[in-house]
Nucleic acid binder design. Structure first.
Ligand SMILES: Nc1nc2c(ncn2[C@H]2C[C@H](O)[C@@H](COP(=O)(O)OP(=O)(O)OP(=O)(O)O)O2)c(=O)[nH]1
Ligand SMILES: [Mg+2]
Ligand SMILES: [Mg+2]
Ligand SMILES: [Zn+2]
Length: 572
DNA sequence: GCCGTTTTCGGCCCGACTGTTTTCAGTCG
């Protein structure tokens, strides 16, 4: 049983305990564990196998939850979970996904109207039965019906960071435009978008202004709006025609730092920081840090962190994945010892670039000139090796022809350098699509999986490990193979692959393509801890794709990488 | 259910908006 399935079980237990109106701290413990497990970089089964007491060392997992995990690992299920699930009809918990419907309401609908799932809830709303219930009325009933219809007609996928950032930019441009522009003292997208998570659930925008009323007015007349969910004096929420929700918070300039800290999250990070403040006899909210009635910080984020005894923590690290412990250990004075996260300007080259020699549209010179002009020092030309499914894959002859072309261009473009490379397929049996005689003459040998995604975990892992052991391999590209919202990662023992890469001096790629962002942040962080090195590559099939590199840098920062961990942050 | 540089017991983040309410519960951020 993998981590995601175990996390789901804990989430369900939490939901059911909450519906049963149990102790809030008890069901929150299940939610917290689910969240932690979802973001773990090692499989629970492996952690347990390596150390029988390993599970309880995970924060938020104590004796009881560890025993449940062990039961699931060894028997494939949890009796306690199954007993709880049996108390409710199939599909019951899905009702919680309807906006405005929570644990109290599903319980009410079930006990009073025997409503068992979303379809029955819809029927009950259409028959005007909901408004007869205590605490319900016409308005809340029609809101629920509208939310159900929206739920049934739209996708529930989280958005790619790339798409969300574009929509956020468009919205910010709109709100800054015209007369309201002068009323805006600061504006910043927050939430998961500011933390640069690979997908985001909604767009959260923070705005500083002395005139929130005017801002809100302009906000709710944004032409892209499909529905206004709520509109207050400091906070409003809407759904855009594109289906994404936008939350806008308007706050006084004096509180902007505290509000940034709040609205950037993550929620788990906020709970921790607020708890720290509380232990120090202070209170932290989006309005500031307070000592009794006295506001002692709030204008900037740094001020807020320092006021509660912590160094500034970069947004990408705020996931409660160890940054709080590190920050507490270092203290305000230790700020210089926080990781100096890599930045886009640290990148000197791009080690994964395609041309019209294989499946891209531009010739080598055009691509190289574009990189040179953008200030890069080098690229590696890594067209695909010949392989089924790849258009114009390169055989040994064409590779050698390409070298002549590269030599010619290197004379012309010096000191800019084009490295000779290839993106070599890993065959199903772990052998490579090009012979060693060619590989050893290449500057950069990227290997990657482009076929047989469905192999069983052990076989897939062995296949990749065999490839990484080839002495000429330099980079393992897009290590998980997932395409966000399109194709799941193939099944592998990622820890074993990371260790093999380290032993064989192979860099792990952080592929910057917005729908890949692969290796994922959690594994980047784990691999860094184990001592891996990385390459942040665009995998560009057009020179304009060099823009993608910033998404690779986002992933790297979320994995706490510094420039020294990244091979293409070095000059040749 | 978890956890410990105030604690092994008694805490567990803090606030906005809505609808239905005559003072606030529920949901959400
Ligand atoms: N203190 C506190 N802050 C919260 C809570 N829920 C949300 N926030 C803050 C932190 C979040 O990053 C921010 C925006 O909320 P969202 O629900 O949009 O979450 P976020 O953007 O992190 O993730 P998302 O991709 O939207 O699912 O609001 C909470 O329960 N307590
Ligand atoms: Mg959000
Ligand atoms: Mg939000
Ligand atoms: Zn490629």
């Amino acid at each position: 049983m993998d981590n995601q399935s175990i996390a789901k079980i804990f989430e369900e237990i939490g939901n059911i305990l909450e519906i049963q109106n149990q102790n809030p701290f008890r069901f929150k413990a299940y939610y917290r564990a689910a969240q932690t497990i979802e973001n773990l970089s090692q499989e629970l089964s492996e952690i347990y196998k390596a150390d029988k007491d390993g599970l309880t060392k995970i924060p938020g997992i104590g004796r009881a939850l560890a025993d449940t995990i062990i039961e699931i690992i060894t028997t494939g299920k949890s009796k306690g979970h199954e007993a709880l699930v049996k108390t409710l009809p199939d599909g019951f918990l899905n009702m919680l996904d309807i906006r405005g419907v929570g644990p109290k309401k599903v319980k009410l609908f079930y006990t009073e109207l025997a409503v068992k799932n979303i379809a029955e809830l819809k029927k009950a709303a259409e028959k005007r039965l909901l408004q007869t219930l205590p605490g319900m009325g016409e308005k809340s009933e029609s809101e629920i019906l509208a939310a159900i219809n929206e739920y049934l007609s739209t996708s529930h996928d989280r958005r790619l960071l790339f798409d969300a950032m574009q929509q956020a930019d468009e919205f910010v441009a709109y709100i800054k435009d015209g007369k309201t522009g002068n009323l805006i003292e600061a504006i910043e997208p927050c939430g998961s978008l500011r933390r640069r998570a690979e997908t985001v659930g909604d767009i959260d925008i923070l705005c500083a202004s002395k005139n929130p009323g005017k801002i809100m007015e302009k906000y709710v007349s944004y032409p892209e709006i499909a529905k206004i969910l709520s509109q207050g004096s400091t906070k409003s929420s809407v759904v855009l025609k594109s289906g994404i929700q936008v939350d806008l918070r308007v706050i006084d300039k004096e509180s902007f730092g505290a509000a940034l800290q709040y609205f950037t999250g993550s929620k788990e990070h906020n709970v921790r920081t607020r708890d720290i403040a509380k232990r120090k006899g202070l209170k932290l909210s989006e309005y500031g840090v307070f000592d009794g009635d006295k506001m002692i910080a709030g204008k900037t984020e740094k001020e807020v962190y320092n006021a509660i005894g912590l160094p500034f923590i970069p947004p990408e690290m705020r996931e409660n994945r160890g940054e709080i412990e590190l920050a507490e250990k270092l203290g305000v004075k230790g700020e210089k010892n926080m990781p100096k996260l890599i930045e886009l300007k640290d990148l000197r080259g791009d080690l994964h670039v395609h041309s019209d020699w294989s499946d891209a549209s531009q010739d080598i010179e055009t691509v190289a000139m574009a990189y040179k002009k953008a200030g890069f020092e080098y690229i590696a030309m890594t067209d695909h090796s010949a392989f089924i499914g790849i258009t114009h894959g390169m055989d040994e002859n064409r590779i050698q022809q390409q070298w002549k072309e590269i030599d010619k261009l290197n004379k012309k473009l010096a000191p800019f350098k084009i490295l000779k490379g290839s993106e070599v397929d890993i065959h199903k049996d772990g052998t490579l699509a090009l012979p060693d005689e060619i590989l050893k003459k290449l500057d950069i040998v990227i290997v990657a999986v482009h076929s047989a995604f469905m192999l069983p975990e052990a076989e897939q892992t062995a296949r990749i490990i065999k490839a990484l052991k080839n002495p000429y391999v330099t980079i393992f590209a897009h290590p998980s193979g997932r395409l966000i919202n399109k194709r799941p990662a193939y099944k592998v023992d990622m820890d074993a692959i990371i260790k093999t890469a380290i032993e064989n001096d192979v860099a792990l790629e952080i592929n910057s393509s917005p729908s890949r962002m692969d290796l994922q942040d959690i594994y980047v962080k784990r691999a860094k801890e184990l001592g891996a090195k990385f390459a942040i590559n665009s995998d560009s099939h057009h020179s304009s794709h060099m823009e993608y590199l910033k998404f690779g840098v986002f992933v790297a920062r979320r994995g706490w990488l510094e420039a020294k961990n990244v091979i293409n942050a070095k000059s040749l």
